[in-house]
């Protein structure tokens, strides 16, 4: 039996389908990211799981039991909000103890658990502070400790890091991974930051307009997306037109063949090929590489890698990220040769 199953959940706001037939199966202990652009329905799904909105149709099964009718306070799902929503009148310890007091744990057990949670999130020395005396990152930790203290079945996180600056965000990403590992709790993590989803999750479900367009491991989604939306949304990407006749591909102003795992084996009049900026090399490359000529239209210095805006003879433009040792500013305006390994090229039909 599956741990948590979302079964064709639909939620409408008037004519708008905020969730459109969403299905998702979650294994116990997984770290799943719900990734998608703004307004794609991620928060709506999370709020439905927590019980704060009532879906129009569909089921949510926990251990095989439909929990749709259960009130939020009876679901035992932890929730971490973007703005933390800490209780301002309670100290750090008081916030963490709140769900335990509500559950009428005895005082000794509460004290022990609060200590344990404070150690887990590294806030022992700040236990008596009030939330307004804490930094954003520290408040975030309190919110996490509070939502984890009572041993929730699932931890729901709605863009918990979006209010933090970049350095702190990266630090908190590592922290969240560690918390996930140490507690073994199932994490459902909403984000619109694709980098965050790629680095943190066991699995990603990509949302678009109220639907899950694709789900899978970060590697699978990044290396072989099956939809243009995912190919474009996860990581940077370039798209050019291509076609296949008698097993030979045409594209990038040249012809080449693709390895089996990339090629469906059928000829196609027109298809879309994609190639990530980081997979493009300078020069003709090795035997078997696809090499092509393009004009450098723009040059942006970027430290170790410079970014080049290229234009093919066909007029199609794309971006390459090339090691700074190989090209310099004087490449601007020149026709140069670039290459890519065939395995790096993807096909969308």
């Amino acid at each position: 039996m599956s741990f948590l199953v979302v079964d064709s959940l639909t939620m409408t706001y008037g004519p708008l389908r905020a969730l459109n037939d969403v299905s998702l199966t979650v294994k116990e202990g997984e770290f799943i990211s719900l990734l998608g652009p703004s307004g794609s329905g991620k928060t709506t799904l999370l709020m439905s799981l927590a019980g704060f909105n009532k879906p129009t149709s569909g089921r949510i099964l926990l251990d095989g039991q439909d929990i749709i009718a259960r009130e939020p306070e009876d679901r035992d799902f932890g929730f971490v909000f973007q703005g933390y929503a800490l209780f301002p009148h309670l100290s750090v310890s008081g916030n963490i103890a709140f769900p335990l007091k509500v559950r009428k744990w005895d005082a000794v057990r509460i004290r022990a658990r609060v200590e344990e949670m404070l150690a887990l999130v590294g806030l022992k020395s700040l236990a008596d502070r009030k939330p307004r005396q804490l930094s954003g990152g520290q408040q975030q930790r309190v919110a996490l400790a509070r939502a984890l203290s009572f041993g929730p079945r699932v931890l729901l996180l709605d863009e918990p890091l979006s209010a933090l600056d970049r350095m702190l965000r990266e630090q908190m990403q590592t922290e969240l991974r560690r918390l996930h590992r140490e507690t073994g709790v199932t994490f459902l993590y909403v984000t619109h930051d694709q980098q965050e989803a790629l680095t943190m999750s066991d699995r990603i479900a990509v949302f678009e307009k109220g639907k899950i367009v694709e789900e899978g491991s970060p590697t699978r989604l990044f290396k072989s997306p099956t939809t243009r939306f995912v190919a474009e949304f996860l990581g940077e990407n370039n798209f050019v037109k291509g076609s296949r006749a008698n097993g030979v591909w045409q594209g990038f102003g040249t012809s080449f063949s693709l390895p089996e795992q990339r090629d469906s084996g059928e000829d196609a009049g027109s298809a879309t090929l994609w190639l990530r900026p980081g997979d493009i090399g300078f020069g003709t490359g090795r035997d078997g590489d696809i090499s092509f000529t393009a004009k450098v239209e723009d040059f942006v210095f970027g430290g170790t890698h410079n970014r080049l805006a290229l234009r093919l003879r066909s007029g199609e433009t794309f971006v390459a990220s090339i090691s700074a040792d190989l090209v310099a500013e004087d490449a601007l305006g020149k026709d140069l040769t670039f290459h890519a390994r065939p395995e790096a090229v993807g096909v969308l039909r």
Binding site: F52, E73, F81
Partner: peptide, 25 residues
């Protein structure tokens, strides 16, 4: 006001929320 939502997700019922979360504030 998301404090109320947070309190519910932590298992508190309306009376507890009023007495322990809203009233002191």
């Amino acid at each position: 006001n998301r404090m109320v939502t947070a309190a519910r997700s932590l298992g508190a019922r309306p009376i507890t929320i009023f007495g322990r979360v809203i009233l002191p504030n």
